[in-house]
Design a protein around this nucleic acid. Structure first.
Lengths: 235, 235
DNA sequence: AAGTGGTCTAGACCACAGC
DNA sequence: CTGTGGTCTAGACCACTTT
């Protein structure tokens, strides 16, 4: 018996091997159903999986083609800083530097899509790995969207961890950059002369309502972001 | 009539709104089928989509639970550098600096999983946006996996573009870092004093056979990597 | 043993886009 | 108008895993 996963893998091989070249038309579902001795629905499931991973494009009547555009997606996982460090066997420490309610600078307001001059919760903190500064977390939290944050001291639990626990679902936008550190940052991170920093800026929303904006600053010499993408093993 | 997409969205809302809290058990397929007045298969498709995007976890007999794991995925798209620049309305230029067959340094061999001392094709080139250096492409190509590359001059078509066109499918691994530029790089990119670089290292495979390893170096002051993740709009 | 998800079949109707 | 994909139903059997 051939499952739709089997069929998916067979079709995948044909694309990989170039048997079905990029841009070429592949047989119709009905034909493939005949070939594999199964229902059209089963073939459909296999093809939909391939379409989801972006390897084929399907249009009614026009049929199914192997994609020509060869853009690839890379996925990386954002997790709690503490887990990130502990997973590598490192020892983790958290330090709260400051916590206050302020009107954020224009730049932050723009990122979060805020119009007025509302005050947000501003939390500045440091994360350490094995005793060395690992990350500055400079965060703004919307008290309108997340009023519970007002009562959180953030003295032992980082905003990063608290938010990921509390907020059930979000959309996010990330910016990654290399940069020269600001003097303060250089100080906090205990950076060597001329050492750049790796900056991640993330804004998250809960159904169109901005939740938080954070600037994460890492020493370049000890930080790298890694992804491992396996296009073929999905499903 | 309720399609599986409708059901998917309804269930998604329940997770977003916290009606189904993280870690909680959600009703069985049979129950939901009753609620929505459709077949269990239809509910199954909706739930599988949610499981695929990582929002729920399903185990036979144990049932389906909203995930507690607090990680988020960010996705970015790898595309041809030329398109990246032209899409922003910039003018693109390509310059080949060097092309030779060499034994790569140990570090590259390790990344690509090469054991022997085989010679690879080494191509060094520059990509310009609006006349300014945008990216150094320092690339090694396996002539075993991609023998066609031997006959490519790469004088007008970049390896980046050629490979993305020719190689139908790969797995990839990325490393992102901030770094101080090497003197040569600083020279090629025409960097200001003390300006760091943003480095992407990518290795790709075609079914376990290493295809290529590339080091992409960008001036930090003019480069940022952006992702926009919409957890909810998939499917 | 029993409950839950995983998947298949056979047949059907619809939606869309080329012709 | 017709071919192709998109999806649903009703019923069935199987595969896990927990009890």
């Amino acid at each position: 018996m051939r499952s739709y996963k089997d069929i998916h893998n067979i079709l995948l091989e044909r694309i990989k091997d170039g048997e079905w070249a990029p841009g070429s038309l592949v047989p119709s579902e009905a034909d493939l159903a005949l070939e594999f001795g199964c229902t059209r629905v089963t073939v459909n499931r296999a093809m939909q999986a391939l379409a989801d991973s972006g390897l084929i494009e399907r249009r009614r009547k026009a049929g199914t083609r192997v994609v020509q555009r060869m853009t690839r997606n890379a996925v990386f996982e954002i997790q709690i800083v503490r887990h990130e460090i502990e997973q590598r066997g490192g020892s983790y420490k958290y330090l709260l530097i400051g916590r206050s309610e302020e009107v954020p600078p224009q730049k932050v307001r723009a990122e979060m899509g805020l119009s007025g001059e509302e005050t947000l919760l501003h939390v500045l903190s440091l994360h350490f790995a094995d005793g060395a500064p690992y990350q500055i977390e400079d965060r703004w939290i919307s008290l309108e969207t997340v009023p519970q944050a007002r009562h959180e001291p953030f003295d032992t639990l980082s905003p990063n961890e608290w938010l990921l626990r509390e907020i059930p679902y979000t959309n996010a936008e990330h910016v990654f950059r290399a940069a020269r550190p600001e003097p303060k940052e250089s100080d906090y991170l205990n950076l060597g002369e001329g050492e750049p920093v790796f900056v991640i800026e993330r804004t998250t929303w809960l159904s169109d309502a901005a939740v938080t904006h954070v600037r994460l600053v890492h020493p370049a010499d000890s930080f790298r972001l890694v992804t491992r993408d396996q296009h073929g093993t999905a499903l």
